[in-house]
């Protein structure tokens, strides 16, 4: 799958590219308005990550062109502005999602997957890893076909982990993902810890063939046993 990263900041562009390449995406990058417009208006991408403030023009204009040409590329706006107008006008113009900088790479990954999944209009909207299955429409979780009850935040955390398997997710990334913008304190970390502890218990009880590994003080990783 092809992803176009339009971002003028060199560090940000390269880290996003590295992270997405590791997720087996085919990554192309553009750092100016002109080169971005050239690429975005010529080729189809499964997902375009679009920065709004670009040297030479606004990312929103690129979005307009992509939508006018009916290229069907999914667009996720990544903006440092985090302002409501940008978000609203971006979504009005047909962007599929909006992510404010700074974000966690794992979250970006989850968002890209979600956008592509939505785009492909899979009837059974599920995510699988090992013998785990997450049904997104009904918010149900099963291990090897047997349903397991999950609390809402447990579901969210598991969804985040299953979207980023074999990847070390920091506790704060998980907290931010589950709480949106409003994570702010040590209590959240304890909360994440206790939720993951419960999840582990439930996975073990249901004979899952994968596990949540923890790296002390850092975070968690979902991987096969």
């Amino acid at each position: 799958m092809k992803v176009l990263v339009i971002e003028d900041d060199e560090m940000l562009r390269s880290t996003i590219a590295t992270s997405l390449t590791a997720e087996k995406y085919l990554v192309e990058t553009a750092d100016t308005f002109k080169s971005a417009l050239d690429k975005a208006s010529t080729f189809y991408y499964d997902c375009i990550l679009l920065d709004i403030g670009l040297p030479g023009g606004s990312g929103l204009d690129i979005l307009k062109v992509v939508k006018e040409l009916q290229l069907k590329s999914n667009v996720i706006i990544i903006s440092a502005k985090d302002s409501l107008e940008d978000k609203l006008s971006g979504l009005d113009l047909g962007a599929d999602d909006y992510l404010a900088k700074p974000f966690h790479l794992a979250e970006l990954n989850a968002r890209i997957k979600a956008v592509i999944r939505r785009h492909n209009a899979i009837i059974h909207n599920t995510i699988n890893f090992g013998n785990l299955e997450l049904n997104l429409d009904e918010r149900k979780f099963s291990v090897g076909g047997n349903e397991v009850e999950l609390f809402r935040k447990e579901f969210d955390i598991l969804y985040f982990l299953m979207n980023n398997p074999n990847r070390l997710l920091t506790k704060s990334a998980i907290a931010e993902y589950t709480w949106g913008d409003h994570y702010e304190d040590a209590d959240n970390m304890d909360f994440v810890y206790s939720q993951v502890k419960n999840l582990r218990k439930k996975l073990a009880m249901a004979d899952a063939d994968c596990q949540i590994k923890s790296t002390y003080g850092v975070g968690y990783k979902l991987c096969m046993k």
């Binding site: 900041d9 560090m11 940000l12 880290t15 996003i16 992270s19 440092a80 985090d82 900088k101 700074p102 974000f103 966690h104 790479l105 794992a106 920091t170 990334a173």
Partner: peptide
């Protein structure tokens, strides 16, 4: 925002 984002991504 942008440089901090870059730093965070690099560390991640």
């Amino acid at each position: 925002q942008t440089p901090i984002a870059g730093m965070i991504h690099r560390l991640q």
